[in-house]
Computed example of a mutant assay.
Amino acid sequence: MSAAQFKKPVRKAVFPVAGLGTRFLPATKAIPKELLPVVDRPLIQYAVDEAREAGIEEFVFVTGRGKTAIVEHFDTAYELEATMSARGKSLDPLEPTRIQPGNLVTVRQQVPLGLGHAVWCARAVIGDEPFAIFLPDELMYGSPGCMAQMVEAYNEVGGNLVSVLEVPEEEVSSYGVIAPGATLDVLGGALTEVKGLVEKPKVAEAPSNKIVSGRYILQPEIMDLLANQGKGAGGEIQLTDSMAKLIGEQPFHAVTFAGQRFDCGSKVGFVEATLAIALDRPDMGSEVRTIAKKLLG
């Protein structure tokens, strides 16, 4: 294939949101974890806003049972809007929740077989186009956003990209880890060639301490690989295993995000994200800082 083949515009994004969110029970018994608020926006809204900033036009939610409220969040709430308008209230807070009709698609992951399987469930919507993947648990905070930075790099090198960050070596066994190659003069040196990928390696066997951090741009050929991908680490169909097979066949790079990453899959990470974003808000930062100092004594 020609180099141009790997530089088609990235218009579509997949959001795997079928998980049960058991670590946040009982809060997530009736409310999807992705709708839990970080300050005043649900977690999924941060990911969708990041996607829009990067030029994404079509949003594919891979859902499971009990997740219909996520779709409703991005629907038009006629009664709410009518009531707010009648009371003279601004509808501006609702603007980010509107996705253009026809640009939101949902597919169902009936069985929880892992991230790779969730992505594969979106194959019919993705077709023959490159696409982005957003793991909403990973709240990437910064300007420009993580995916906007990745798209900028993609426009230079094409192919496949992942976002990465460095963690202490003792933590690598919890993540997908890259084997880094040469550093490229793109994004101020934040772009690195990827020579290999390992899912949840033992600490002694990890090729680096650079972990994949929840954002991807992948070529459509990944779907054929996922269709035949056996179970990997944790007994699940791992996206990392199929991505590794693209290395050497297509361009593959990693972008070190110039911003903050919060692991909102954990309760401590969720609290950290809420506090950090609240402190950064001009409308409440000073008050929150005062409260934090008071609580810390």
Rank of each mutant, 00 (worst) to 15 (best):
V203L: 07
V203A: 02
V203Q: 13
A204P: 00
A204N: 10
A204F: 02
E205I: 01
A206W: 07
A206Y: 01
A206N: 06
A206D: 04
P207D: 11
P207V: 10
P207H: 11
R215C: 14
Y216I: 04
Y216M: 06
I217R: 02
L218N: 07
Q219E: 07
Q219F: 00
Q219Y: 00
I222M: 11
L225G: 05
L225Q: 08
L225E: 09
L226G: 01
A227M: 12
A227P: 09
A227G: 11
A227R: 11
G230I: 15
G230C: 11
K231G: 05
G232F: 05
G234K: 10
G234W: 11
G234C: 12
G235S: 04
E236P: 01
E236L: 14
Q238R: 15
L239N: 07
L239F: 12
S242V: 04
M243F: 02
A244N: 13
A244L: 05
L246H: 06
L246K: 14
L246I: 10
I247W: 12
I247D: 02
I247R: 01
Q250V: 06
Q250F: 14
Q250C: 08
P251R: 02
P251W: 08
H253W: 14
H253A: 14
T256V: 10
T256S: 14
F257I: 04
F257R: 00
G259I: 09
Q260I: 02
R261M: 07
R261H: 12
D263I: 01
C264F: 01
S266L: 09
K267E: 09
K267H: 03
G269P: 13
